[in-house]
Amino acid sequence: MRELSSETNTATDAAASVIEVANVTKTFGDTVALNGASLSVRRGEIVVLLGLSGSGKSTLLRHLDGLEEPDSGTVTVLGEPVSTLAGKRLRALRGRVGFIFQQFELVPSLTVLENVLTGALARVSGPRLGLWGYNRALRLAALGHLDRVGLLAQAYQRADTLSGGQQQRVGIARALMQNPEILLADEPVASLDPESSDQVMALIREIAMDQGLTVVCSLHQVDLALSWGDRIVGLRHGEVVLDTPAAGLSKAAVMEIYGRVATTTAELDAIATELESARATDLIGATAESAR
């Protein structure tokens, strides 16, 4: 069993670490969202946070961008103590971290290009209204990002005229507009059909590899996580229950992952059957390998 415990994590090279979460606890009313969670991510890693809904993945991601404050514990991102930052410094840090949302979170009534340009807000000062509120260089850059995600032609359409997959690609372009060092993605394909899902996940991975970005992406599908990520971090009830490289896992190890992440035996049975058929076509091994 190649399980990396938290002791191994603390042993990793601190200099290369861009994300450092230590013993973070967060409750919302009676609900415990994070319960002493710790995590360390090195520059360039592509990490999947795996867990059922309510396991604390989103809350953890939101802590990384300073969108939530921990009740206790510390969060350090790019050397900055996120949990104690405020104001200008927090915004500056947020500017260096891109965030991709499950529901895309585009402004429906604005054009695609304007939506992408909002990614540059941390770099400009003051409010911006309309396209001409951004200078030519920014507009050109935004168009470049749109081209990168294959939506240059849709630049002047309203965001709500696009399909879900296209909207998420705009979301990616918006994150890229920040020139981020880290890319956080919260269930980026949970609202998409399988085909768009594949496109979007492939796009995120491609861009991350091209630009050497560190990626932390939450997912709830084990097979997708295994085929896509370099490293799997499992969450259950707000605790990190698993931390392992994704490559070359045995069937037993995969079942172990399901066991740790999923909760009920019924779910486990269903997943096991599914996994069996997937194994038969050697899907997991092949895609995981080719992605590397």
Binding site: D65, L67, L90, R91, A92, L93, R94, G95, R96, V97, G98, F99, F101, Q103, F104, E105, L106, V107, P108, S109, L110, E114, T118, G119, L121, A122, S125, G126, P127, R128, L129, G171, R174, A175, M177, Q178
Partner: peptide, 28 residues
């Protein structure tokens, strides 16, 4: 919809920018 506003905050926008780019287009 709080989403776009959150997205702008996540990208490092100021409160005023959240308002002009996230809220205003929605409420206009």
């Amino acid at each position: 919809d709080e989403g776009p506003r959150l997205a702008i905050r996540a990208a490092g926008g100021t409160t005023l920018q959240e308002f002009t780019s996230g809220i205003l287009p929605q409420v206009l």
